[in-house]
Design a protein around this nucleic acid. Structure first.
Length: 854
RNA sequence: GGGCGCGUAGCUCAGUCGGUCAGAGCGCCUCCCUUACAAGGAGGAGGUCGGCGGUUCGAUCCCGUCCGCGCCCACCA
């Protein structure tokens, strides 16, 4: 006799708090190291950026991963499912600046007793030292991380919180620095002084992967250069202020209009600088005037021309985005520059236009144009191009062999859904430079590098000084270079630190290494690397996904995981991506509170891999209804008189309809399992749910009276066993989707967690000797009976005077054993008339219902 | 401009290796307090499967083309 502990009033409320606490206390989701790699399922969980709040999109995509994790756990795998916080980098810095009203000034000294201002003044941020700033970053991320953990716990993510990591932890810094030192030693990381996309507000370099184009209003200006004979050459530009930086005019080699000019020089407006007119295939005849003003640097095309045509460097815009105060030495007429010195790009443009207008070299009034301009995806001013010294990491952008290898890795990877592989392929093919990994910021992983200073105090960038791996992590700004004394810092003959930090993607590209204990825990690494699954949203294929492939390829010569799963976005009802700036973000805590985690997870599970889905509150109610139904159904089955789970054996099930139901369930188990194996969690849920509702509506109704004992003990036992077996299996099929309600119900008669129970096997439903088709015939009959009553606006308890069934003999025969059940559920008091038809005349079952007079 | 995905009931989406495939849920309408469930149940109405061609005995499903939508990439003279 099994003990059934049925609560008086089962409810969904409070299940999240109750069970997430118990799971944690009992270590239900803990990774226990098994003997072999094949018993592990390792997940490279995306570490969310800790700089604000999570939105519904996070809730959906993390749920998708959790569905797979829970399935694999029930399949008996030791699931390695860590969580990480991506808490270093610019997003955190910006949040700290806004939250506390501070800014980092590395020249200031550390203040041990520093307290942030009570009332932050966003307009006048308080300047604080680098160390104080970093302390505030850590303080705030700790607060945010607590909120994230609470939300994920409430959502029911089955991560092993003992495996939590942070990208700013000493361990993460060690991993990032170690990997970098190895890249450096192998020649994959290198310093280069080159034109760099630069955010003038944040004052840092930006990588290709972090660019975005924004349609921006501007104006074309037609301005005149001058031939030696004084006649004008007209160019059209949206950046007239860069006239001062003009290095050449460039037209297409085949352009008939400029053939006579190639090789000649022309004088620039205002400054009268002689610049050559050159031919280059990248010039487009039908763009603007067909002849371009090449400046250092207005855009990336300028960089190409500058490099390929060996043009001089005439940069005037400094790192803060202002025109340098010193007058450039290449100007023939330096006088006009006085009006530009020290100005921002924006006001220098206005001034230049005024100057050109005054000299008559602006030959037409500017006309408005909207064109795409490159921005840092997190910035709010157009990027400038300045020449700086930066660290680069090989990513195939300059090396065709490496590019080919990375493309091959992409093809080796299994993609869910498969078409996402194209995005990887396209991105890699489109790379045109190596990965710029240094950032001129503060809250990040410092480069473990110092430079010797010569007698004149100039750094030797060609021979960086690096620490031993055993000495990691290091902070070169705080620690002296190996072989030097602290007092030699920034002194001639001494050393200086590399002041930069790594791009946040440079550290997060190592999450597989960080999570699996690379060079820290060889046993763990052996068990979990390469990992099994890399889940992420489809927008970061070019960044996080690609960068991890690069790192793992370079360091380990393999993919970091076997499979990548891409989640879609949750979009607003207008199909627009949710974002804070659009004000269409839905706060997940409200939704979870209102509908319950199981309901929200159900909705997430209905979003297929890679597909965007619009947010719709009404859909949550459907999930809620499922959870409620599971609860009520369970209460009914377990509450049947004399129902003892110990008696739920297929051998007790001897009624045809019960066997038919189990036969259908057997198919469902097979299909759901196959779907999960293919990472198609939506299909698994849909299959299960379709069965579930028919089960509730038809089968349960049909056998209810019998289960109460209306047809004797033996028939009742068959019904109870059928119901019980189905419940036991269904709960487990639903467990990944609705972990809370299934666990609650499971606990009514089981000891251990459902999430550590075995995923159902088809054979649990007994031998495949039932006829699933019988259920369909029964549905037809039941629907007809209900329809008749509904049409007559009668109660479902209304009596049926006569039922006529017409159909193939085999069908009628199959229905014979179910007559008692049918009569009970349909309140059929009169006779049932059977009319046999030849099997080939009609395949369907015809039902005629005559209701008794009320 | 290139790539990818998508256009099926008012909404969100399944589906068809071409022939009972025109489906589900939500919404809507009507009805029902039936002892698991009114935070429920039953029934019903709704679509020439984006347009136009083609292949075929037959196309929502295959091919071509056009229109529309979304995402990614390129496009700053």
């Amino acid at each position: 006799m099994s003990v059934v502990n049925l609560p008086e009033h089962p409810a969904l409320e409070g299940l999240e708090a109750k069970w997430s606490a118990r799971w944690r206390d009992q270590g239900v989701h803990r990774f226990r190291r098994p003997a072999g790699r094949d018993q592990v399922f390792a997940i490279d969980t995306p570490p969310p950026t800790v700089s604000g709040s999570l939105h519904v999109g996070h809730v959906f995509s993390y749920t998708h991963t959790d569905l797979v994790a829970r399935y694999q756990r029930m399949r008996g795998k030791a699931v390695f499912y860590p969580m990480g916080w991506d808490d270093n980098g610019l997003p955190t810095e910006r949040r700290v600046q806004a939250y506390y009203g501070v800014r980092c000034d590395p020249s200031l000294p550390f203040e041990p007793d520093f307290q942030p201002p009570d009332q932050p003044d966003p307009k006048r941020p308080l300047a604080i030292s680098r160390a104080n700033f970093i302390a505030l970053c850590q303080q705030l991320t700790a607060i945010d991380e607590r909120a994230f953990e609470d939300l994920f716990t409430q959502l029911g993510l089955s991560v092993d919180w003992d495996l939590l990591y942070q990208t700013i932890s000493p361990e993460a810094i060690t991993v990032a620095q170690r990997a970098f030192l190895r890249n450096l030693a192998r020649g994959e990381a290198y310093l280069d002084f080159a034109p760099t996309l630069w955010d003038v507000t944040l004052q840092t370099a930006v990588a290709q992967a972090e660019l975005e184009d924004r349609q921006t209003a501007g104006a074309f200006h037609r301005i005149a250069f001058h031939r030696p004979d004084g006649s004008p050459v007209l160019v059209e530009t949206t950046r007239p202020e860069l006239v001062v930086s003009a290095c050449a005019l460039i037209a297409h080699p085949d352009d008939p209009r400029y053939q006579d000019l190639f090789g000649a020089t022309v004088a620039s407006p205002l400054f009268k600088v002689e610049v050559p007119v050159l031919a280059h295939r990248a010039a487009e005849m039908d763009k603007g005037a067909g002849i371009a003003m090449c400046c250092t640097f207005g855009d990336l095309t300028d960089v190409i021309w500058w490099r390929e045509l060996a043009l001089p460097t005439r940069t005037v815009i400094d790192r803060s985005g202002r025109f340098q105060t010193e007058t450039p030495d290449w100007l023939v007429d330096p006088a006009p520059y006085q009006a530009l010195a020290g100005k921002t790009v924006f006001s220098a443009r206005q001034t230049t236009v005024e100057l050109l207008r005054a000299t008559g070299e602006l030959v037409a009034e500017p006309w408005a144009v909207s064109r795409p301009v490159k921005f840092y995806e997190k910035g709010d001013k157009p990027l400038e191009i300045v020449s700086t010294r930066q660290w680069y990491l090989s990513n195939g952008g300059r090396d065709p062999d490496l590019k080919a290898q990375l493309l091959a890795r992409g093809r080796e990877l299994k993609w869910v859904p498969a078409h996402m592989a194209h995005r990887f392929e396209d991105w890699v093919n489109g790379l045109n430079g190596d990965w710029l990994v240094s950032r001129q910021r503060f809250f990040g992983v410092p480069f473990p590098v110092w430079y010797r200073l010569d007698a004149a105090g100039q750094p030797d960038f060609d021979h960086p000084v690096v620490p031993a791996e055993a000495d990691l992590p290091v902070d070169p700004m705080a620690q002296a270079a190996p072989g030097f004394e602290p007092g030699q810092r920034d002194r001639p003959g001494g050393f200086t630190a590399d002041p930069d930090v790594m791009d946040t993607w440079a550290t997060s590209s190592l999450t597989p290494h960080l999570a699996t204990g690379w060079e820290r825990d060889p046993e763990l690494f052996e068990l979990t690397f390469p990992m099994d699954l890399a889940p992420q949203a489809h927008d970061i294929i070019r960044t996080w996904l690609f960068s991890r492939v690069v790192r793992s390829h370079l360091e380990n010569g393999c993919l970091p995981w076997r499979r990548a799963a891409l989640s879609g976005f949750v979009v607003d009802p207008d199909r627009k991506k949710m974002s804070k700036s659009k004000g269409n973000v839905v706060v997940p805590t409200d939704v979870l509170e209102r509908f319950g985690s199981d309901a929200v997870r159900w909705r997430a599970a209905m979003a297929r891999p890679g597909a965007d889905s619009p947010f719709d509150q009404a859909q949550m109610k459907v999930g809620r209804r499922l959870a409620t139904k599971i609860l009520n159904l369970s209460r009914f089955i377990l509450g049947l008189p004399d129902n003892d789970p110990a008696q739920w054996s297929p051998t007790v099930v001897d009624q045809a309809v019960d066997r038919a139901m189990l036969a259908r369930l057997r198919q469902v188990v097979t299909q759901a399992t196959a779907a999960y194996e293919a990472f198609e969690y939506s299909d698994a849920l849909e299959t299960t749910e379709k069965f579930f509702w028919t089960f509730c509506d038809d089968y349960v109704e049909l056998v209810k009276e019998r289960a109460y004992g209306a047809q004797g003990d033996r028939a009742a036992a068959s019904a109870r066993a059928g119901l019980g077996l189905a419940l036991d299996i269904l709960l487990r099929l639903f467990a990944p989707t609705c972990p809370f309600v299934t666990e609650e119900v499971w606990s009514w008669w089981h000891d251990g967690s459902i999430h550590l129970s075995a995923w159902p096997q088809p054979d649990e439903a007994g031998p495949p000797d039932g006829d699933p088709g019988l259920l369909d015939q029964l549905s037809t009959v039941l629907t007809a009976v209900r329809g008749a009553k509904s049409q007559a606006k009668a109660s479902m308890r209304a009596a049926v005077a006569q039922l006529e069934l017409a159909g193939p003999e085999a069908v009628l025969e199959a229905l014979q054993p179910v007559v008692a059940d049918l009569k009970a559920v349909g309140h059929i008091v009169g006779p049932i008339r059977w009319t046999a038809r030849p099997p080939d005349t009609t395949t369907g079952l015809m039902v005629a219902v005559v209701l008794a007079e009320a």
